[in-house]
């Protein structure tokens, strides 16, 4: 394996989802996504129908990584917040801690100022959840042994129906 594992437990997933549900209402947003920096979707809330959430997660992570590299070229550690303005829909992206990215999609019902304000509040709550997750990861967890008993046959049978 190249590096460690990112693990999201049900408890933290629930907490992150609740924070996002509140943020959708408070910021009058259309949809909110939490994505990990390697491009995996953690949770999605709001009007997500019709959005390719997996593709969105990977593109947001790629764009955030590229923005981070631009920041470093200019001597900044990171650009923790970036904003994309469209004709009717806008995207507010903020880096939460070391591992996660918060994406808020909003339209004319809201405004950049309101989204920024509400995201700042949600940020602190999310940072707390991530801290918990990191603590758990450091402590290790016996439940993690998903792979322990898989056999070669299990691995082979993975491909039977897909290709």
């Amino acid at each position: 394996m190249l590096s460690g594992q990112m693990v999201i437990y049900e408890e933290e997933h629930q907490q992150l989802t609740e924070i996002c549900e509140r943020l959708v209402r408070d910021a009058l947003a259309k949809a909110i996504f939490v994505v990990d920096k390697d491009g995996q979707l953690v949770t999605a809330t709001g009007e997500t129908a019709g959005i390719d959430t997996t593709g969105l997660a990977s593109l947001v992570a790629g764009s955030t990584a590229a923005t981070g590299s631009l920041a470093q070229m200019l001597g900044e550690e990171e650009f923790p917040v970036h904003f994309h303005e469209g004709t009717s829909k806008h995207l507010h992206v903020s880096v939460i801690g070391e591992t996660l990215i918060l994406v808020v999609i909003f339209d004319e019902r809201s405004s950049l100022g309101l989204v920024r304000l509400r995201v700042k509040r949600a940020y602190l709550e999310m940072a707390g959840v991530i801290e918990n997750l990191n603590r758990k990861a450091k402590a290790g967890n016996k439940d993690l042994d998903i792979f322990g008993e898989i056999t070669d046959d299990d691995i082979d049978s993975l491909f039977n129906d897909a290709f």
Binding site: M1, L2, S3, G4, Q5, M6, V7, I8, Y9, E10, H13, Q14, D36, D38, Q40, V42, T43, D143, L144, I146
Partner: peptide
């Protein structure tokens, strides 16, 4: 880094 989501039951 592998990503394990217990809530969604996915790796």
């Amino acid at each position: 880094m592998s990503f394990i989501n217990y809530a969604q039951r996915e790796i």
